[in-house]
């Protein structure tokens, strides 16, 4: 009897959670493949007509291939800023972990500040304009790097703490120190945490909406999130195309999730348990 009750409770919890968390995705997928007339209903009726390919090509071609260009921009920004974050944060995390002292304390303080303090937007625009990088991809990349560094430094520092110093000393006896010690000996050992940083930072940058909105305004060189935001007002009668856009934009994080779920979870929960 108790087993039955237990099983019943489990089943209810399971169904409830699945419904609450899956229904919005079901709506996205169903609406994305319907025709325009049926899509207006925004319901869960089975598509009368499967327009996967047509909706896909229509969304891609819309407004002179704006989505395609946005995709290219998003990929450039993501790849460039994540690559820079990995190298810069790994180096900083290494020195920070190995060499305590006044400067280390200051660096620790700055890392924590970076995690907490909301960035001052208009002064950042003013500064980017001053160095000629406002409304450029390079400017946005620098912004993503600056805001992404603190968390990456934390992850690298925590991982490097587990690498024995004896290794550094052995390398130093062989005449390796500084940059050579780091790139020849330490960096290859950081592979697991590097993958974690790449994944968490990529998802964050690719999904970022606020920074492109402020620092890369205009339609010409928008990123996918801003394009999606603009589609919302332009396609308010063509829900099928709007949701096809959403599906297309959700595919990269979905792939990351399918292949690297554990790594991402490890990265996001790192350090949160030991405080």
């Amino acid at each position: 009897m108790r087993a039955v009750k237990r099983f019943g409770g489990e089943a209810v919890a399971l169904v409830l959670a699945a419904v609450i968390f899956l229904i919005p995705f079901a709506l996205m997928l169903l609406t994305a493949v319907k025709n325009q007339v049926q899509a207006i209903d925004l319901d869960f009726a089975w598509p009368t007509e499967w327009r996967v390919v047509q909706n896909f090509t229509e969304v891609i071609q819309a407004r002179d291939y704006v989505l395609l260009r946005a995709y290219v921009n998003s990929i450039i920004v993501t790849v460039a800023s994540v690559a820079i974050i990995v190298v810069f944060a790994a180096m900083a995390g290494f020195v920070l972990q190995r060499r305590a002292g006044k400067l280390g304390a200051l660096a620790n303080f700055l890392v924590l500040s970076g995690l907490i303090i909301p960035p001052a937007v208009v002064p950042t625009i003013w500064l980017l304009q001053g160095i000629g990088l406002f409304k450029t991809l390079s400017g946005l990349i620098l912004v993503e790097v600056a805001f992404g560094l603190p968390y990456a430094v934390l992850l690298f520092r925590a991982f490097i703490a587990a690498i024995p110093r004896e290794l550094d000393e052995a390398a130093m006896i062989d005449g390796c120190s500084g940059l050579r010690l780091f790139f020849k000996v330490i960096f290859p050992l950081l592979r697991p945490v590097t993958i974690t940083v790449i994944l968490t930072a990529s998802v964050a940058v690719f999904n970022d909406f606020v920074n492109p909105l402020y620092f890369l305004p205009g339609d010409g060189n928008a990123t996918v999130q801003v394009t999606l935001y603009n589609f919302q007002s332009q396609y308010n009668t063509q829900w099928n195309l709007l949701f096809m856009d959403i599906v297309l934009i959700t595919i990269p994080p979905l792939l990351a999730f399918v292949f690297f779920n554990r790594k991402i979870v490890a990265g996001l929960t790192a350090g949160s348990i030991k405080g």
Binding site: A92, V95, R98, T124, W126, G178
Partner: peptide
């Protein structure tokens, strides 16, 4: 020699210019 502070430099420059200076100027 082994852990030169210069290795902070790339991260520090970006962080200083893009984050700290605007925050201060605000």
């Amino acid at each position: 020699a082994a852990y030169p502070y210069a290795m902070y430099l790339p991260a520090a420059v970006v962080y200083l210019v893009i984050f700290l200076i605007p925050t201060g100027m605000a």
